[in-house]
Amino acid sequence: MLLNAVIITLREVLEASLIISVFLALSQLLERKLSWLLLAMFVGAVGGFVYGQNLGAVSMAWDGMGQELVNAGLHLLIFLSLLVFMTSVPHQHKKRWRIVTLIATITAVVVAITREGSEIILYLSGAMSIPNMLLPVLIGSIVGAGIGISVGIYFYYLLINMRLKYGMWLGYLFLLLVAGSMISQAVEFLIQADFIHAGKPLWDSSNLISERSVIGQLLYALVGYEATPAPIQVVAYVSSIAIIAVATVISYQFRTPPHDD
């Protein structure tokens, strides 16, 4: 049971902790206050709890496809927040844009924690209600969360101790991959809800890197790795990354020279 608790907690915590550490680092680099992010983390935890508690009702909504649709919606929302965040960063010298950036950051953090947190909360509350599972699940989730948060801390200090330019680039690159993964997962949920036709998997790399393996799980959490992705998933993944990249570049081009407002 311990290993299972580790994997579930690690997978969810790692994703959330990396996203948060990138935002924390970028706000440090953009010289923004961190208190908003802490508040967003708390709101996200509450959101995860509420979502987890009502998952049964959500599941049966929309002909039993409620969970898929809500999850797809949440992933889409994270993607949109990332899009807004990355396109608004070049305009930080304008107050209006700074507020836009802040709202995008908060939305992304709240939604990410709500989504990842609901699963952990459901798992922990279920597993810990079984007496002889309490200890292994507790230790397992501490270990998983500990590893996830530690990696997040490393990533954070890596970003803020790099040269400003490189730190921003690495953070951007990571957010790009997260955005692609969000869209890929949203598409996967829509396929599962039978809204999109899956078609035959584009490739099968489960012999190379199995999704069951630790590396597979890590890659899934980091960049949305799939061993047998549907063609439309790959198309969505690549095009979403392209959209953000192009939008960010265009936004940079239209950047007005800094002046006081």
Binding site: L3, V143, G146, I147, S150, V151
Partner: peptide, 21 residues
């Protein structure tokens, strides 16, 4: 503090998992 704790946690927990397995 954070860097050291993160290191101790990572090293300990990974070896813990290894030992457990």
């Amino acid at each position: 503090l954070l860097a050291l704790i993160a290191t101790i946690t990572l090293v300990n927990f990974v070896s813990l998992l290894h030992g457990y397995q």
